[in-house]
């Protein structure tokens, strides 16, 4: 409340024409100060602490920590699984978005709600949900507990909405006349898809896929039960980091955390670049 009433004194005076945002003065400065302090205590300092702890024993210490055999296998498995999940999502997400936008069938609204379940469901519940069907007492006799396929399945579950939800609005806005024109000029369904639809939706596919890659890299809750956390096989980076911090190995934990953090930042920056390019083209 203080923050808002402080805004009072600094809202651009009525004499200002137009709706251009103004410079920060007085009370808004105080609000901004509180915001910056909160972000510093909550985000910046903790992240600085992770990076600084990773290099407590110098660059050699960081390097040793991430090349430790257990860490290395957790990291490579996590990146590999995230990459696989990203590719599957790019294809299946686009397909599902297409069906939801262009097709109509009874129960479509239910499917729309089901798509959002993975985002709304707590990750640990997601894991439990998958184990019930694809675990030791599942009805299909498929037991994926302790397998890498199980981990990939959990990652696919939690990342399902990313591509669907980013491609859907683009498809809704897409000009169908161009597709009809392509078809009337004799283009096959596949050619129309490749030459007309794909270029339109590609930026949205890339941004959805990028977000699902970032999410899969750091996923923990949904994976923990189905992976059974087998070292060198199904252990993901997040589980390794937790294990290290709990066994009082902060440098090992912080090093792998720094690596994950760095990868996430790279993905976010790349996505920002893609988004800006698309915005400029429009």
């Amino acid at each position: 409340m203080t923050l808002l009433s402080e805004l009072d004194r600094v809202t651009p005076p009525p004499a200002r024409r137009g709706r251009r945002p103004g410079a920060v003065t007085g009370g808004a400065g105080l609000g901004l100060g509180v915001g910056v302090l909160w972000l510093t205590l909550l985000v910046l300092l903790p992240i600085a602490a992770i990076v600084s702890t990773a290099f407590d024993d110098g660059i050699a210490g960081f390097w040793d920590a991430i090349t430790d055999p257990e860490a290395r296998s957790a990291i490579t498995f996590t990146i590999g699984a995230a990459a696989l999940v990203t590719v599957v999502n790019a294809v299946m997400g686009t397909l599902i978005a297409w069906v939801l936008v262009r097709d109509s069938f009874p129960g479509k609204r239910v499917v729309e709600v089901i798509i959002d379940i993975p985002f709304a469901l707590p990750t640990i519940v997601a894991g439990l949900v998958l184990i019930t069907l694809y675990g030791p007492s599942g009805p299909f006799g498929i037991n994926l507990v302790g397998t890498r396929a199980g981990v990939v399945l959990a990652l696919l579950f939690v990342t399902l909405p990313f591509v669907v939800r980013s491609v859907q609005p683009v498809l809704i806005d897409a000009d169908r006349e161009v597709e009809q024109a392509a078809a009337s000029l004799g283009a096959s369904g596949f050619t129309t898809f490749r030459r007309v639809i794909l270029p339109t939706v590609l930026p949205a596919v890339v941004s959805g896929a990028g977000l699902s890659f970032a999410r899969a890299l750091g996923e923990f809750g949904s994976v923990i039960l189905i992976s059974a956390n087998l070292i060198g096989k199904t252990q993901v980076s997040s589980s390794y980091i937790l294990k290290m911090i709990e066994s009082a190995e902060p440098v090992a934990a912080a090093s792998v955390a720094t690596l994950l953090l760095g990868l996430a930042v790279v993905v976010l920056v790349l996505l920002d670049v893609v988004q800006r390019r698309t915005a400029r083209r429009d």
């Binding site: 103004g22 750091g218 923990f220 955390a257 996430a264």
Partner: peptide, 27 residues
């Protein structure tokens, strides 16, 4: 308002949801 570091601030706010929750806890 326009202030220096506005875009950086926006990026910093987005960062925690894009990283592993375990990393958040460890941090």
């Amino acid at each position: 308002y326009r202030f220096p570091g506005r875009r950086l601030m926006s990026a910093v706010i987005d960062l925690p949801v894009s990283i592993s929750p375990v990393v958040v806890g460890v941090a």
